[in-house]
């Protein structure tokens, strides 16, 4: 039976999950700092403005540096890598909130256990206000809301219990790895959605990579020129889209595990 066309209805509600399988929730503002940052000055300012974030580690950006020497036998040129400071990674004492300040934007992550959207988005917006004061960006080129879920009990054998559309196995060959990425436009809305499904063969002794990872990234397709005015509505819509996709991509049986 053909599926109904996509319906954009912010009034549509979704079931509450008391044990959501979220391992990381992220709100990311891609916005270039208009102020020159000086490492020590910025560290002092951030520790004053965000005292709850007790750890402040420098972030390095990898730069590919091509070696300039050509050997006599004309082997391919060597590449070196340089690291350059480009911001700070802050963490709360319990390591549940991570804020990454770079000259290209701010990413605020909430790690397990995820509480609720209101608490998470309020904290992210509070940190965003700090970013705007230290970076003074003129616009937001891209806003992203990303939820990474881990469905621990999923295996290659029971994937059909979790996904309404599990991968096809040609000639019933046993599945060894699943990596599926797709992206979608939202009709009539300036948003896009990217979905990644990832399942890897378990590595002996490692438990954190088992299960099915479902990664939902909802993002703006156009810049926010007035972020202060547009932010709340954008986040509300993006969260709704995330929920819409999440509940559509899982079976009722799977969702029941997290209620």
């Amino acid at each position: 039976m053909a599926k109904a066309p996509f319906k954009f209805d912010l009034g549509e509600t979704f079931r509450h999950l008391s044990k959501p399988p979220i391992v990381e929730a992220i709100i990311h503002w891609q916005a270039r700092s208009q102020k020159e940052w000086e490492a020590e000055g910025l560290r002092a300012e951030l520790s004053k403005l965000l005292p709850e974030y007790t750890t402040c580690d420098p972030m390095q950006q990898l730069q590919v540096d091509f070696a300039a020497e050509i050997s006599e036998d004309e082997k391919p040129p060597l590449t070196r890598h340089q690291h350059q400071w480009h911001g700070y990674r802050l963490a709360t004492k319990d390591n549940k909130y991570i804020a990454q300040f770079t000259r290209d934007g701010l990413a605020v992550s909430r790690r397990q256990p995820y509480q609720d959207w209101e608490e998470f988005s309020a904290e992210a917006k509070r940190v965003w206000q700090v970013f705007t004061s230290v970076a003074q960006p003129v616009d937001v080129q891209r806003l992203g809301v990303r939820f990474i879920n881990r469905l621990e009990s999923a295996t290659f054998e029971n994937l059909g219990d979790f996904l309404p559309d599990p991968p096809t196995c040609p000639s019933n060959l046993p599945l060894n790895e699943l990596f599926y990425q797709s992206s979608f436009t939202v009709p009539g809305q300036p948003f896009g959605v990217r979905v990644i499904k990832l399942m890897q063969r378990p590595v002996e002794g490692q438990t954190q990579n088992t299960g099915l990872f479902l990664d939902f990234d909802v993002y703006t397709e156009t810049p926010l020129s007035r972020p202060d005015e547009e932010l709340d509505d954008s986040l509300k819509t993006m969260r709704w889209l995330k929920n819409k996709v999440f509940f559509d991509l899982l079976t009722d049986k799977a969702i029941a595990l997290y209620r």
Partner: peptide, 12 residues
Amino acid sequence: TTLGFGAAARSI
């Protein structure tokens, strides 16, 4: 991509 931090984000 929206920037992640944890082990799952790195793995993906």
